[in-house]
Amino acid sequence: MTAPLRVCLPAQNLLDALTPIDGVEFVLWDLDGPAPEGRLDLLVPGYMGKPSALAALEGVDVGLVQSQSIGYDGVAAVLPDGVTFANAAGVHETSTAELAVGMMVASQRGIPDFVRNQDTGTWDNSPRPSLADRRVLLVGYGGVGKAIEARLLPFETDVTRMASRAREDERGTIFGIDSLYEQLPLHEIVVVSVPLGEQTQQLVDAKFLAAMPDGALLVNVARGPVADTDALLAETSSGRLRAALDVTDPEPLPADHPLWTVPGVLITPHVGGASSAMFPRMVRLLRKQIGLLLEGKDPVNVVLP
């Protein structure tokens, strides 16, 4: 008799959503406390856990680690040798793009100001800039960037795409990152959705921000360290630039950090993927991975080793 595929999940809700599957034995473990005995063919860590939690896998017989996040910065340093790691590409793009566009609409149309005015009964109906007709630069054209583009186009925006290298597709030119400083001055909204790595650490620095035109909006749905917080604080505090940030550095942002109170800065607490859209998409990805493993095929979304 063939041994069942052993799948380790971090929480009961995933177990309830996936069981039963013929040929699969499910176990629960959230990387805290002793590991289950025996081989774990597929292991899912908890959502938004720190990469350091994967150190608990040392000495455990694990085949594939299936993350619940798209980003995997810091994982390579702690992932035990011989363990394969897959990210959650396809799970968070919908939700993150939805938040990114929502933050753009809110920032452009002054919704944070209207919410504050509601506390004092202030009626300020001065005109605000639209999202329509704005020139938007997408810095990062992976799954999240493409999902943001798909939602921006119906808003009648003019979208420019930028990836690590230049190429063409059915919509035309995708610029390479080498033309960043040519493109930044041409766009009123700049959306950053690049993965965090050596090339993107503090990509949004003083030079980057200085190249953006007066009154422009920076949207960061990547990772906090992609931006230089001091440079961002300087440009937004002066009123020259605005920002909509789902991620910050440090994170969580301390309650007394001056960025919280800068006019024109909208902050959400790293909730791009944290919506009701995540769970069903995560379940679908896990079902796909389990099906592939049962068939003896390679899993999808493998990013390490």
Rank of each mutant, 00 (worst) to 15 (best):
A150K: 12
A216W: 02
R171T: 06
A222F: 03
P127R: 13
S95T: 13
L99I: 14
Q108D: 07
E156V: 02
D124R: 08
S179C: 12
L232Q: 08
V226D: 01
P258E: 00
L218W: 00
L31G: 01
G197C: 09
S238Y: 10
V75L: 08
P258M: 00
V247F: 07
G172W: 10
W123N: 04
D22V: 12
V262L: 03
Q118K: 13
L5K: 14
L184Y: 06
A56N: 06
D246Q: 12
Y72Q: 09
G296D: 13
L292W: 01
G273Y: 03
L292Q: 04
E168C: 02
A277P: 01
V62P: 15
A35H: 00
G71N: 09
A3K: 14
A53R: 02
E58G: 02
L266N: 01
V75T: 02
A211K: 04
G102C: 05
R134K: 14
L180Q: 09
P10Y: 03
H187A: 08
F26K: 09
M282E: 14
D214N: 04
K146P: 09
L15G: 09
V136Q: 02
I290S: 00
M103T: 07
N13R: 11
A88S: 04
P280E: 10
G215F: 00
N117D: 14
S107G: 15
S130Q: 13
A274L: 15
A55G: 13
P280C: 08
P4L: 04
D73C: 06
S275A: 10
W29C: 03
L217F: 07
A106H: 10
V65H: 06
D249R: 15
I189D: 10
A206Y: 03
D214V: 05
F85E: 01
N117H: 14
V247A: 10
P280T: 06
A206D: 10
V303C: 02
V271L: 13
G197E: 15
Q289H: 06
E251Q: 07
G74E: 07
G143Q: 07
M48N: 15
A244Q: 13
A132N: 05
